[in-house]
């Protein structure tokens, strides 16, 4: 797996923070650090990240594998806790939260899309989405969510009967069905070819546009970055660059 292109600018991470416009930030992250103990070795996955994510924005987090972007995403999504630093979601602090609070946060506010879809193979597309709609507070109907990703004709198919791109779109439908404020996507096109990948990104863009969901997409594929509002680059556990696209490039023009 080769690293993505090195970011052009080498702005200090501090400068990235507070660069938002008028919209209020959904996440406010300060000096975030994460250290994994691997036997006798300490691995510094995050070395002091400062960041704000604004409501409704489409953000791409770019970086080679091992740069810490998945760790950051996991902490934002309440799947993992930082070693130090603070994460604020609106008024709430996520660092140091207990399991019950994190579970509630995941259940109500955040949607996940994974590289390998992580669908439950024994449930149909509709049932996979229902997993979420049954426990969320203001969910849409599973059919509605699946229609948004244009899978209204595949409702009763099992994951094994769907193509990779279709499976990923089910995963997106499952993630958005709870109407989350944030959608966190970890390499959503990583396992897909270009054409299928584009279809999946289209779905993400549509959700972002129609529902106004702040969307964070992790990728090591620099080509994807062009359809975002903002692109952050990561390397070695630090934010090493920020770029703002004045106009988002239409997906039809993106290739990799």
């Amino acid at each position: 797996m080769s690293a993505g292109p090195a970011p052009g600018s080498s702005q200090p991470a501090d400068a990235v923070a507070g660069s938002g416009g008028a919209a209020p930030p959904v996440f406010r992250v300060r000096d975030l650090r994460k250290v994994y103990e691997m036997g006798e070795v300490q691995v510094h996955a995050l070395r002091g990240v400062d960041l704000e994510i604004l409501a409704g924005e489409m953000l791409v987090l770019l970086g080679p594998s091992g740069s810490g972007k998945s760790t950051l995403l996991n902490i934002l999504g309440g799947l993992d806790l930082p070693t130090s630093g603070s994460v604020e979601y609106g008024e709430r602090r996520l660092d140091g939260a207990d399991e019950a609070l994190l579970t509630r946060f995941r259940r109500e506010h955040v949607g996940f899309v994974f590289q390998f879809y992580n669908l439950i193979p024994s449930l149909t597309a509709r049932e996979n989405v229902a997993l979420v709609t049954e426990i969320a507070r203001y969910p849409m109907r599973p059919e509605e969510a699946l229609t948004m990703v244009r899978l209204q004709d595949r409702l009763d198919h099992f994951p094994s009967q769907l193509s990779g791109g279709e499976q990923q779109r089910v995963a997106i439908a499952r993630a958005i069905a709870k109407r989350p404020q944030v959608l966190l996507c970890d390499e959503p096109t990583g396992a897909l070819d270009v054409e299928t990948g584009i279809v999946v990104l289209e779905a993400l863009e549509r959700v972002n546009r129609e529902l106004g969901t702040a969307t964070v997409v992790i990728t090591h594929n620099a080509a994807i970055a062009d359809f975002a509002d903002r692109v952050l680059s990561m390397a070695n556990g630090e934010l090493v660059g920020e770029r703002r696209n004045e106009t988002r490039r239409p997906l039809s023009e993106i290739h990799w």
């Binding site: 999504g77 019950a100 992580n118 439950i120």
Partner: peptide, 14 residues
């Protein structure tokens, strides 16, 4: 294990 991870990420409690 991946299904369990997904369920947890979706907000299912332990």
């Amino acid at each position: 294990r991946e299904q369990i991870a997904a369920l947890k990420a979706l907000g299912y409690s332990n």
